[in-house]
Design a binder for these strands. Sequence first.
RNA 1: CGGGGCGUAGCGUAGCCUGGUAUCGCGCCUGCUUUGGGAGCAGGAGGUCCCCGGUUCAAAUCCGGGCGCCCCGACCA
Length: 420
Amino acid sequence: MFIPKSFLEREAAHVEGFAPETAVVTHGGGKQLEEPLIVRPTSETIIYAMFSKWVQSYRDLPLLINQWANVVRWEMRTRLFLRTLEFLWQEGHTAHATHDEAEVEARKMLGVYRDFMEGWMAMPVVTGRKTDSERFAGALRTYSCEAMMQDNKALQAGTTHNLGQNFAKVFDLKFQTESGGMDYAWNTSWGVSTRLIGGLVMTHGDDVGLRVPPLLAPVEVVIVPIYKTDEERAKVLEAADRIVASFGAWERREPGRLRVRVDAREGIKPGAKYFEWELRGVPVRMEIGPRDLDKQQVVLVRRDTREKRPASLNTLAEDVVELLSRIQADMLTAARERREQHSIRDRITYDRFREIMDGEGAFVYGGWCGDAACEAQIKADTKATIRCLPDEEFRSAEAPTTCLRCGRPATAEAVWAKAY
RNA sequence: CGGGGCGUAGCGUAGCCUGGUAUCGCGCCUGCUUUGGGAGCAGGAGGUCCCCGGUUCAAAUCCGGGCGCCCCGACCA
């Protein structure tokens, strides 16, 4: 939670990047502290100070520490979920014997993050490397997952860093090598935060409310019973209980059982229940009424498309499991298609680029000359930044040959967008 | 730190310009009827109109000061 001010100051680029946005504790126990304590904005300094005590030999490497922690960054302006003064995140820190091993780790964690964002959140991302001006303060290289929100702005959803030996050198994180010499360790760090919740909302939310992908939904299926008389009520609820019991035994599915809930509240009409569960984003609603039972069926309604269809009681569990996995897949596909519809890969003039950034926004794939001054000028002109230099699978079939703004030869393809 | 806006019942608001019994919706209470897309009808309760001061016979309304909140910008991996 607290980091001695001198720790933060040890790595020059790190302190320069973070000092303006730190909260500082000057008093403790009623007395002024000899050395102020920084409320951690990130934990590299304190972690590597400890690593240096733990590591002596190459045999102690690699070393990985993961922690869930709250951090504080004194932003001038906050935005719910996306930029808060205090946020909860997961931060991982590693130490390795070689540069290449650290590089592999940084890339691996980027893949882990991507798998979660796409496989679980159904939030597609573009992965790639940050430019020098956008990379983590103190890192050698920063990689990121960039998602597109429904207003066509980019959300940096997670980052991983190859820190090189920058922190090891200032915290004296040394080890004896296999051949008997001494070397500084190679570090990586990586994190994702509660910002992902904002990303989920802004990727999938619609006019009706939240849409939660099945794999993350606390309730995947809500059963809404429909009845008029007490007799009907008893019959319908009994059928609902039987369905829940049969689902409870359903274990052929990954991961685990079906999470089902019966909304048996009385005094609330079915329509009101529909609206409430739609607002909360429950992926599938199952309606059971007397008319359905007569036909040995229920009605299934998808939250993502709001499509409604009957399903036989005989094959219900299989049907629901199949539907849930289809919803999971369709939500990712729909989000990805949406992103691609708002991605521009055609060569466009800088005037056109400015027009787009001034208007509806987009991910614009364009050439970059590699000059930080040019990058800064584009930001000044349009507020758009290079979100990343995309990994190969995201690059255009035909690589751009000239810089989007200055027309000089391109050194890389870049994804430009306004960001949160 | 600049620019703009707003504070009226639990919530959302009208009224303010042009001073005169504070409006409507949701919610709440009681009763009856209701339940396949946000129930209906009838009756009812609920207010320091953000605070302080001024003008006036009379202030939610006009004037002065204060407080609070929101949005935009600067800032931000």
